[in-house]
Amino acid sequence: MDIIKVNNLSKVFNGNLRAVDGVSFEVKEGEIFGFLGPNGAGKTTTIKMLTTLISPTGGDAQILGYSIKKNAPEVRASIGVVPQEYTADEDLTGYDNILLLADLYGIPRDVANKRIAELLELVELSNAAKRKVATYSGGMRRRLELAIGLINFPPVLFLDEPTLGLDVQTRTAVWNYIKKLKEKYKMTLFMTTHYLEEADHLCDRIALIDHGKIIKIGAPEALKAQLGGDIIKLSVSNDKPELKKILENAVGVKEVKKIGNEYRIKAKSSETLTPKLIALLSSKKYQVTKLSMTKPSLDEVYLEYTGKSMREEQGGFDRFAQNRQMQATRR
């Protein structure tokens, strides 16, 4: 059952900046679907279009069967949004912020009061509810945004980098809440992130996006499997030209590449192959000096399809994200 259907969606800014360039995908009911990509890839722009905040310059999408172009009010009534920035009103209390949104969704007061208490409990803000949001820490504000996004019990929840700028501990906590909420309210989640681990552990399926285009879609496991297996890297002290042939002919080896004096061996399962390879090499009197095994990771998937490593970028890019977050909070 496709709860979100996106068809050739595009957004061109200022006539020439193709922020989102014809993306198409489906999200199934109950899924956690992730958009994974570097800064400026077009993740937020896609979410803004899907949540009817900006209108697409091309294509369309259906959420619960409602077109984001033609049935925007129905779409809005059916979704929850947790934006990338902190958008709660700092001058009001956490409670007043949620209450306002409850009013804007037309939730009857008695129902709203019960829900607000329940949500505040869930995100552990009950004690801070009567304090002004300006006094909240980053993690508290993130959790408040979550509670606000959930006030209408949306069947579809959009989360734009919900853990941006949080420390590892808070990140884990936030994800625990999100998973709890998803179970409890049986929601479909559409999220963006640039944390590879996050996408890997949480998402049922992910789309790799770069320069506004979807490069690859699939379950993290499937994407990794498509890489063709694990990678064993080894070097020997007494290298000979015929070694490559020997490795290639070994049972279980799929591909051998020699980079410098290191052999990169692709294998279905590195755990079972490695001992066999060592035995084989010592029987042929080769001295193994270095050996490592790598499981396929999303980083390698990313590397395979974009030709660049996300992890390499990530240092710079986390710092950037952090800066932006600080600016957002300072404002």
Binding site: T52, P73, R76, T87, A88, D89, E90, L101, L104, G106
Partner: peptide, 14 residues
């Protein structure tokens, strides 16, 4: 608008 508050209320069905 700057605080994103307008964005927040624009995604509500009002």
């Amino acid at each position: 608008r700057r605080f994103g508050f307008v964005d927040k209320i624009l995604t509500a069905p009002i």
